[in-house]
């Protein structure tokens, strides 16, 4: 597919970016190669793994299944925008401290997903947490410590 490039404006982590990319370019592609925001990962490029998860207007989205051209005025939040530079959000801190991070390739997606969950529900129970995480694959951890990190953050187990 050789393609004419399209100009669009993306609001990513509060900043506006003018991007020039083929109309078929995914948001993931543009974030990673166009904007150098490589924190969002490509684990499958077909919507299953969740490593590319970002927030669109605060809602979870697969950036590999979102065309950059179709983002429009929706605000994009990536892993780089979760906390200040070299800062950690409570979610990030909980994952680090619970030993929930192994190879780390899935981690940005889990951070985004948990960030969305805690924004809606500061005290989710175990089943709510598990349901929220159901679209993120982790091949290393067996999920137990990820769920524990979230439970810890929710303030109390079970």
């Amino acid at each position: 597919m050789s393609q004419a490039k399209r100009r669009s404006v993306l609001t990513v982590n509060g900043e506006q970016h003018h991007v020039l990319a083929p109309a078929a370019a995914t948001l993931l592609d543009v974030l990673r190669t166009g904007l150098g925001l490589t924190g969002s990962k490509c684990g499958c490029n077909h919507g299953v793994c969740g490593a590319c998860t970002v927030l669109l207007d605060g809602k979870l989205a697969r950036s590999c299944l979102t065309l950059a051209a179709d983002v429009g005025e929706r605000r994009v939040t990536t892993i780089e925008g979760i906390a200040g530079d070299l800062d950690f959000s409570a979610v990030q801190r909980a994952l680090v401290e619970s030993g929930a991070i192994q190879c780390g390739f899935c981690t940005p997606g889990f951070v985004i997903t948990l960030t969305e969950l805690f924004a809606r529900d500061p005290h989710p129970g175990r089943e709510t947490i598990r349901a929220a995480l159901s679209g993120n694959l982790c091949r290393c951890s067996g999920y137990v410590k990820i769920v524990e990190a979230a439970e810890h953050l929710a303030g109390g187990v079970r």
Binding site: G39, K41, G104, T107
Partner: peptide, 16 residues
């Protein structure tokens, strides 16, 4: 983990 922080904030460098 030493590198967990970098992984948590998306700064760990993988090949791609």
């Amino acid at each position: 983990r030493l590198e967990a922080g970098d992984k948590a904030i998306g700064r760990a460098q993988y090949v791609d």
